[in-house]
């Protein structure tokens, strides 16, 4: 089992519904976010191109945060989901320094927090909150090891990219381009 997310940058309208859904579902403290929308404008006027990306923890196969964690608080769950055990986290913030995506933050309660792919929902067979609320249905979540899953299918038929592949992390959030 290998959980992954594919996000269609051509369908995303940048409404930030995923951000609000995540904050509500996961009780994210005010002023923080576990996922966020990035708008990249490239080119030279008048030939401009906009890409909208809903970004979050990439749940990398080779996670530097898990490697750098001195207590084992950051760890892989079944299916490759990377989570932080709050009761083992000492708040040294080494994982924040180690993340090329800056996807983690120091929770006001002291421990380090980040996207969990809504593991509490996934375990019940539901989609992560961001995926389930997306009004354009531009996000796909599922098991990459299952060739028939929606995420496998959509990645087979489309061109995709990952963020900062040169960082060597083997991320599991894919952007359809």
């Amino acid at each position: 089992m290998r959980y992954a997310m594919a996000i269609d940058t051509k369908k995303c309208v940048g409404c930030s519904d995923c951000v609000v859904a995540c904050q509500t579902e996961n009780n994210v403290p005010i002023g923080y976010c576990r996922d966020w929308v990035v708008e990249v404008t490239a080119g030279k006027y008048p030939n401009l191109e906009i890409e909208l990306r809903s970004e979050r923890c990439n749940h990398c196969d080779n996670s530097p945060c898990v490697r750098c964690c001195p207590t084992g608080a950051s760890h892989y769950e079944e299916g490759g989901i990377v989570t932080v055990n709050h009761y083992e986290c000492i708040g040294c913030n080494a994982c924040i320094e180690s993340c090329p995506y800056d996807a983690r933050y120091s929770h006001p309660d002291g421990y380090v927090d980040k996207c969990t792919f809504c593991i509490h929902r996934v375990e019940k067979g539901q989609n992560p909150a961001c995926v389930s609320v997306c009004p354009t249905n531009c996000m796909y979540f599922g098991d990459l090891d299952d060739p028939l899953s929606e995420v496998s299918q959509v990645m087979k038929n489309r061109k995709w990219k990952v963020l900062a592949p040169e960082a060597g992390t083997n991320p599991n959030v894919y952007y359809l381009i």
């Binding site: 976010c33 929308v37 990035v38 404008t41 490239a42 913030n93 924040i96």
Partner: peptide, 22 residues
């Protein structure tokens, strides 16, 4: 020349605009 302008919605304390956690 190809130019890029990036706007991010993320404003996490000590992470944005520049990492300063240590």
């Amino acid at each position: 020349m190809k130019e890029e302008l990036l706007v991010s919605g993320r404003q996490n304390l000590n992470i944005d605009p520049v990492l300063h956690i240590w």
